[in-house]
């Protein structure tokens, strides 16, 4: 089979770059003030420890100034967007291998929404983001394993729900939809069967909540921009190859 994967890859990189940069600038403006505050509070906490005689745990090696780390946030977000763009394009090409150029707009939005759920929201529900100052260096390997497992479960779960829905195409709508919903619940159960985050969270509840909302908002913004750009580029390519395309294309299936 020869699916034209390279045009999709190009669109994925463009959309990913735009999405990563947008999310990076958004979080630079809104999340960095919170992170700076969290770091100041962490420093205050470790000073208190020092005053009370306990060994000050200064685990932040000051390799970079805060402003360099602010810049690092935007770069990290850009790299994240580009990498997701590549993986998205390949997944999109495989799922739509029969007619990869059809219905680019609704498919891009649907696929981005699914990717947001699988890659961003589900793992974030199980292991919500924590601001700087939370996170024990001794447990980082364990937490990375758990987080990776949550992302993998999110992606595989999404594929599973989609497959259940597709394979029951001959059945009535209630059967199909209930089966897909039941599968989704089972995936959630597996996700929440993972062990919890072992770390303490010694941060004020309001700061924590605001940070987590901004974290999910950054993910959502990234995927929204991604879907819009990817879909728009697909529409443009479609307009180029066949000027008045009869858009009677079927959605994913």
């Amino acid at each position: 089979m020869s699916i034209p994967v390279l045009p999709l890859l190009g669109r994925g990189l463009t959309a990913g770059g735009a999405a990563g940069l947008t999310a990076g600038l958004f979080s630079l403006l809104l999340a960095e003030p919170l992170m700076d505050r969290a770091i100041r509070l962490e420093e205050a906490r470790s000073h208190e420890h020092a005053d009370s005689g306990a060994a000050a745990v200064q685990h932040h090696e000051e390799l970079f100034s805060r402003s360099t780390q602010h810049f690092g946030l935007v770069v990290t977000s850009l790299v994240f967007g580009l990498a997701l763009g590549v993986l998205f394009a390949i997944g999109y090409a495989l799922v739509h291998r029969r007619d990869p150029e059809a219905a680019p707009w609704p498919r891009a939005l649907l696929f981005s929404g699914a990717a947001f759920l699988a890659v961003s929201l589900l793992p974030a529900l199980r292991y919500p983001a924590n601001p700087p100052g939370v996170g024990d260096g001794a447990t980082v390997a364990e937490r990375q394993g758990l987080w990776l497992a949550a992302v993998v479960i999110g992606v595989l779960g999404m594929v599973l729900v989609w497959q259940v829905y597709v394979r029951l195409a001959g059945r009535s709508a209630p059967v199909r939809q209930l089966a897909a919903a039941g599968t989704a619940v089972a995936v959630l159960a597996v996700l929440f069967a993972l062990p919890g985050n072992p770390d303490e969270v010694p941060v004020a509840a309001t700061l924590l909540w605001d940070f987590r909302v901004l974290s999910i908002a950054s993910h959502a913004l990234l995927w929204a921009v991604f879907g819009v750009v990817f879909g728009a580029l697909g529409l443009r390519a479609l307009g180029r190859t066949a000027a008045p395309a009869p858009s009677g294309a079927v959605p994913a299936g």
């Binding site: 090696e61 690092g72 946030l73 990290t76 977000s77 700087p132 980082v140 937490r143 993910h219």
Partner: peptide
């Protein structure tokens, strides 16, 4: 990466990506 990807970079990579890791929910020290 926690400073093991390229030995010479030490934890520079980790510290540079520090804020992005926290923001996107990746485990950090």
């Amino acid at each position: 990466d926690n400073g093991s990807l390229i030995a010479a970079t030490g934890s520079y990579l980790h510290e540079f990506a520090h804020d992005g890791r926290h923001l996107f929910g990746a485990p950090c020290h």
